[in-house]
Design a protein around this nucleic acid. Sequence first.
DNA 1: CTGTTAGCGCGTTCAG
DNA 2: CTGAACGCGCTAACAG
Lengths: 333, 333
Amino acid sequence: MRDVAAAASVSVKTVSRVVHNYPFIRDEVRSRVQAEIRRLGFRPNGNAVGLRQTGRPAGSIGVLAADLADPFYAGMVSAIEQVSTARSFTTLVASSGEDAERERTLLATFVERRLDGLIVVSADRRHDHLRPDLDVGTHIVFADRPPQRLPVDCVLAAHADGARQAVEHLLGQGHRAIAFVGHSPAIHTARQRLRGFRAALTAAGLAPHTVRTDALDTEAAHRATAELLAAEDAPTALFADNPRLVGGMATAIAESAAPRTALVAFDDSELAGVLGVTVVAQDPRALGTQAADLLFSRLDGDHSRPRRIILPTTLVPRGSGEGRGVALRATRS
Amino acid sequence: MRDVAAAASVSVKTVSRVVHNYPFIRDEVRSRVQAEIRRLGFRPNGNAVGLRQTGRPAGSIGVLAADLADPFYAGMVSAIEQVSTARSFTTLVASSGEDAERERTLLATFVERRLDGLIVVSADRRHDHLRPDLDVGTHIVFADRPPQRLPVDCVLAAHADGARQAVEHLLGQGHRAIAFVGHSPAIHTARQRLRGFRAALTAAGLAPHTVRTDALDTEAAHRATAELLAAEDAPTALFADNPRLVGGMATAIAESAAPRTALVAFDDSELAGVLGVTVVAQDPRALGTQAADLLFSRLDGDHSRPRRIILPTTLVPRGSGEGRGVALRATRS
DNA sequence: CTGTTAGCGCGTTCAG
DNA sequence: CTGAACGCGCTAACAG
């Protein structure tokens, strides 16, 4: 900026005024400065601006996702970006890869860079360390997974309720031998789904046929499903804990001796649509939109008590949960 | 920091030293300062640090993706993050949503925040405006799409060559009536694929059966495919320009009177794997890794001429391109 | 081992 | 309409 000022024979302050479109500047001076700005390739230093302007928002929010490669979070982030862009805010995204330590590092970076607000999908089990940051004025909203002992807003889907919905749908079709295929419930949301699954069966006076929590990926799910269906006393219906298991489970069902075994999965996906797999869908974009709206209402000065928003899930029947088996289906209209 | 210094009765510089683990400090003083840091919830102000330490890297790179919701870019970003994390760098991601203006805004934000380097999947047709930023010392690597008139590194997949590979595979199976289904080639990579498609047919003394560039999404592709296959003179093989069309096209083929019509798609996807669709695969993670390696070599002081790395594509036969049609297949081992 | 001085690049305040 | 001086929070260089 000094250089530009010198080159245009004005003071730094005048350059600053030109950059900020301050109106009362002679056109001749303005254009001379602008020319030098272009010629020298000057860019205002965001660090210096952020340092000088304490209090005023910097115009950027941060999103910490657990896993960017997961289409669910990708959709959520995309919705957040949309809200944020509409407000002329920049959205910076980082992902922890489900690693709590990396999450803490990244959150620290966000806070240190003094972003105006954060939306967090946390892979951590504790959040006390964020308490000081709240006081510094960083607004935080938790999405998809609740905060532990931290008074902040959060937006969640009704996981337990969604699993219950799936089981009740299968019960309504007459199924009594219903198995759960998923992974070890270390993560809060997975725990909720398993809880809802069990609760719905208990309420009907039944017990789970099987609960398999060793299906970490689609191939493990394929094996688990094949084993279940090959057994003497095979289940007549399967509940897939998450959308990453659908491919393996659907294929295993199609290859088995019981290709009409019912399948309902938690969370929608392109694959489920094409294969005609019935799902209990959350709306990732709604999750993101709500979280962003909540964050911006805080940035706008809403100081009310932390809110917790629970979004309902929707059962989408496509055939696999209604006795028509798994197969290639026409695209949804 | 002033507050911490006052509370611990030391100078600010001593606090700074404690924060940075400067070794020569009395343990008693160190722990006293640390206690006050915790008590007051102090966080170093990254803006101030970045402002003072010019020259030294700030430890963060930026990634501008065209569309975060696209699994291809999600995988690429994930690979970049992995390289970056291994170097103890923070990765900040933003996405332009294929909007050139938003891309420019976001890049400006990155540059202003003085990130150490950028990896860009550009939706813009011009990049001259970045030239000044290069001089400021921001290192830029283009990924997936080449820069226009900007002397920077870039990593690309062999799009034209990949399309050629697909066509030759189909020619090898005896197909002569091969149709292209895709979208309008506004984007560089799509243009390259169409070019490779035409070139391969021309080289064999053939012309495309049809070139449809109106398939913007999976449903449009479903319609286009259905129309093609219902015609008197239907093609015997289809080339899908991108992985988002696979669901619609596979379903249309399965529903048609010619369910064994061959299908080869550009880019791999989970869906293609499960449906047994033959693809010409690029490796998004390799793209990210190479781009990140290139960027970090620049940060390490490599001043050689800009490089252009072209990554080869791989033909993955799964049945749909080899006369076995489209159907549910076992998961890949 | 610790404190003092100066200044990173910019915006704010107050004078011209 | 424009400029000079000051300070944001922190660290490099130099003293003690």
